[in-house]
Computed example of a mutant assay.
Amino acid sequence: MKGILLVNLGSPDTPNPKDVKRYLGEFLMDERVIDVPLWARTLLVKGIILNTRPKASAKAYKKIWWDEGSPLIVLSERLQEKVQNKVDYPVALAMRYGSMTLKNGLQELVDKGCTEIKTIPLYPQFAMATTETIDVKIDELVAEHFPQVKITRTPAFYKREDYINALSASIGEVLNGLDYEHILFSYHGVPERHIRKSDVTNGNCKMDGKCCFKKGSPQHEFCYRHQCEITTINVAKKLGLKNGTYSTTFQSRLGFDPWLKPYTDRTIERMGKEGIKKMAIVTPAFVSDCLETLEEIAMEGEEIFHEVGGEEFTVIPCLNERDDFAQVLTNIIEEWAKTPENAMV
């Protein structure tokens, strides 16, 4: 029997510092999030970050917390329900970090009789710190606890036509009739070294802004920067955006190593100082609104823009539980189920 496991990032159980600290500890100790030797990661995370950051992060979470709970969890559950209503297979939801564990999600499907499970990380673009860490953890859990289960992974879906159509529609609905001068496509940032580590060509990636657009490069299958750039380009084409009215930026950097540029916060500040008065911003690396979109972008980003003279700052929601996005996931599931190797299962 087939089953589907949708996987998102995760969230603290509550916005209280104790729960936030527990969540941050699990998240930041992941070797694919902070990819330094264990001793250095332990010193950084447990010796410094967890002694300073949880209180500030808890305040940020409190700003965006809903009565129903964490926005990311609530929105993911709504999406799961919509997908479940569209397919005949059991659909479970799990998080990479936090109490909604991958093990519990797999166990839920196994308890329903599933022996073949398709995992769908809810990330349109591949990254070492998102999709890869999910795939690796799933493999570990299956080997240890569910050896009878066959796992099928889902490739990054950033260039699927139905996804681009859904993302473009969500943006177009806000931009239609909106008087704006520039739209930022802000993606979650990662260290530049993550891009190099994911380069299957072992050195073809030059981080020079050129190889991302070279057609047919094999590293593009696992290059986060390329996939972000192409997402922006495809949406811009779909919406008919004019050159110079949109750009790609990256947010949420940590530490002193170089991260993907240009940075979102500095771009917002620069454009405001240059006289841009009306800006729109969308965050296509996230499918569910969360701390990074609701607080970092919608609150901190707007504050930066207004401080430097900007007037109107329009934040476009993530895809969340939109019907067209639920249909994208449904299409992915149905295409998998119809492949020859699955047709008779």
Rank of each mutant, 00 (worst) to 15 (best):
G275E: 12
E108F: 02
E295N: 07
A58E: 05
P15C: 07
T131E: 01
I64L: 06
N176I: 02
V200G: 14
T154F: 00
T232S: 11
K150H: 14
D179K: 10
N176M: 09
V345C: 13
E303Y: 05
N320S: 12
K59Y: 07
P155N: 13
E296C: 14
R225Q: 11
G189M: 15
Y23K: 04
C228R: 01
F27V: 06
E229F: 02
N234G: 04
V235N: 04
I233L: 14
T201I: 15
D179I: 10
Q219H: 15
P37N: 09
A40E: 14
I230F: 00
Y246C: 11
A58S: 15
N104W: 02
G177F: 14
R225F: 00
H188G: 08
Y180D: 11
A56H: 06
E312G: 03
T119M: 13
T119V: 15
A337W: 10
E81Y: 01
A166K: 03
P191H: 02
I34E: 11
R153P: 03
P121W: 10
N331D: 11
T52S: 09
H145S: 12
K137C: 14
V190E: 01
W259Q: 09
K62M: 13
E295F: 07
Q125N: 14
H226Q: 00
A129I: 02
Y180K: 13
E334S: 06
L93S: 01
A236E: 03
T267D: 06
P147T: 09
N320W: 13
E140Y: 04
T249P: 00
L329V: 15
M29C: 12
L6D: 01
L254I: 11
Q251G: 04
Q227L: 05
G309P: 04
Y23C: 01
K118A: 07
A169D: 14
N243W: 10
V174H: 12
K46V: 09
E181T: 09
E307D: 14
R32K: 05
W336H: 15
L72H: 00
T42S: 12
S99G: 05
E341A: 11
K55T: 10
P340I: 13
I304P: 03
P147F: 06
A92F: 01
E81V: 00
G209Y: 02
G172Q: 07
G10P: 06
